[in-house]
Write a protein that binds this DNA or RNA. Structure first.
Lengths: 347, 347
DNA sequence: CCGCAAAATGGTTACGTATTCATTGGAGGG
DNA sequence: CCCTCCAATGAATACGTAACCATTTTGCGG
């Protein structure tokens, strides 16, 4: 039987300083258990002992190892955020709010910015580290990930989009948003209106489009198939759309965009093509993202009445779930209204 | 001596399914060691065994526990990103690039968006989880954090800003940027120029301001103390600045902003105050953030010649450090040039 | 001054993985 | 047919922490 050799870990090994609670314990002349107590339940430790330990911690510049803690507690204080790309200003607003709020409550957030195709890998990467919860936007109506998440028993919530099962989501009233957007441009006299939206496999775009369509119907306007553009929301597709539009004899007078991001891209390309907004073409978005208020932009749009950030709403609910302050299924839909600014005008 | 009781962990405990490599091993009829080998060095395992194990993994929907792995390997595949707030478009660009690149190389990124005051807590939260590296922007010229990071032996890099020690940074040539910005407005005939920048305890603002000052001197222009605004970069301060400016008898004809973010805020407030840009006042920024190109904005600014994203440059270098492909101290300064757009005009 | 409860502290183990070392089995050469 | 060597697998351990249970110390009433 070999004799066990005890290494003094406070000695630099391989250039990397490893200090564990055992080292602190040795230095302070107490047990590792006591060190742990000093950090977690100091009220159970006599003051002189606390001081000794704190001194040792200071001297060794000890930092507890979160991984070890996560392992034993099966609690990571980490949330995975799977967001859409930041070139979409909607996700700028939500990411900012989510990370800030979670951090304030002591959660680390590890983020991924993905496109729809990458969701499976993203999800795999996310749960490998046994996070306490997952907050995600990029989910399709008919996404197998949803059931996997449910089976995993990890608290999760989708924001902005939802799954066809109609569970665990935070959204705005997308149908009404689409309706209001269309109704607004119709009220201002537009007759030839174009829809530019994202894939209908996404709840957000689908319901907004349906609402848009209903408003067109209710007002007895006609809508040609060629006036519906279902794009992948990339800036290149937007360029293609405008190439198509500007080559027509009658350019439409108004564009309803499926989101503010699409609207902003459309404006950018319109201006590049020499079309002024709103003089030559009116453009309305949906989401009321932060930057839409900028004086340079003044985007007319539809958004949540409360002007609450959807990401913030979602992260609050998620953390309630994690901390068991809430356990019923979350189904949150914000009412919407028009934000009348400068990118739509009367004809 | 008590007999050890073996729990079958594949049974649901407390509503949460815990599956470990031991469970997989039991199910496949092999040892835990073999399961580990199948996942990490499958070439050392006979094919039939690999198949058995993979089948068990599938059936139990086993996911390896990253925390346990990190603990034993002392490698986390995680990077901490301490960024400035996302309402600053510069950090939108960098965060996006950093997270995307790191994810592609298999690193998780946990992010924090902070203001300068919060750096100490942010740093503590970051290293508690023994990350492989830290990438941070919000560092002051004279920040004690810097030495702590060095002592910690964790690879790290600062982007945008640097520490007074002139080590481990990625930046643009801020001095020249300030100079070019000033020179440009001077070339267009402006005589009364105002500087609006952030705190001089930040390398970026300090050097940009110095460059600006030098250009003023070189052109024999005068500069009153009241024409220098050193703000905390908040939108409220910007409002105060404009309150001051518009109350003057002679409103300056040009504003050199310490960053694009400041410039964009300035434009916003200027327009709110009924000042048109550039008709009533010219405004130039520094950074050349992505959104500055937007047709609605067309911000005149100074930025990196290569137009490479600073965050991307930084994360690439950081990962080289982590993977030992690089070990000399990183000191990266990008050359700059003027991006002449629409927010500055001749007088 | 004793005894006993409560406070304070310590010893041991589990968490889930990768690694190190030990063991088994089979192929191939003499 | 035996010995050697290598491929394949397994057993035991370490990583750093919190939790559980055990032990020691303190305080206090009688």
């Amino acid at each position: 039987m070999l004799k066990k050799v005890i290494l003094n870990k406070s000695i630099t090994m391989g250039g990397i300083q490893l200090v564990s609670s055992k080292d602190v314990a040795a230095r302070a002349g107490v047990s590792q258990t006591t060190v742990s107590r000093v950090l977690n339940t100091p009220e159970l430790v006599k003051k002189p002992t606390v001081d000794k330990v704190m001194k040792a911690i200071e001297e060794l510049s000890y930092v507890p190892n979160g991984h070890a803690r996560s392992l034993v507690q099966n609690k990571t204080n980490t949330i995975a955020l799977i967001s859409g790309p930041l070139h979409n200003p909607f996700f700028v607003d939500t990411t900012s709010a989510i990370v800030k709020y979670a951090n304030e409550l002591g959660y680390r957030v590890h983020v991924q910015f993905i496109n729809d195709e990458q969701i499976t890998e993203a999800y795999a990467a996310a749960i490998e580290n046994k996070v306490d919860g997952v907050i995600l936007s990029c989910i399709l109506l008919d996404d197998p990930i949803f059931d996997k998440l449910k089976r995993m028993q990890i608290p999760f919530i989708t924001y902005n989009r939802k799954h066809k099962s109609d569970e665990w989501f935070v959204e705005i009233d997308n149908y009404k948003a689409g309706y209001l957007a269309a109704q607004h441009v119709i009220n201002l006299g537009h007759q030839h209106i174009v829809w530019i939206g994202g894939p209908l496999s996404v709840s957000t775009y689908l319901h907004r489009y349906k609402g848009f369509n209903k408003a067109i119907e209710d007002n007895h306007l006609s809508l040609a198939d060629s006036d519906i553009f279902i794009t992948d929301t990339s800036i290149e597709s937007m360029r293609d759309v405008f190439q198509e539009l500007t080559s027509r004899e009658h350019v439409p007078t108004a564009i309803c965009a499926g989101s503010d991001s699409i609207a902003l891209d459309a404006i950018d390309i319109a201006l590049q093509n020499g079309l002024n907004v709103p003089e030559d073409v009116s453009i309305i978005g949906i989401d009321n993202v932060g930057i839409s208020k900028h004086q340079f932009i003044q985007l007319t749009t539809v958004g949540s009445i409360s002007e609450q950030n959807l990401g913030l709403v979602a992260i609050k609910r998620l953390i309630e779930l994690i901390e068991n302050k809430e356990n019923s299924c979350i189904k949150h839909t914000e009412s919407v209204k028009l934000f009348n600014r400068k990118t739509v005008r009367e004809v």
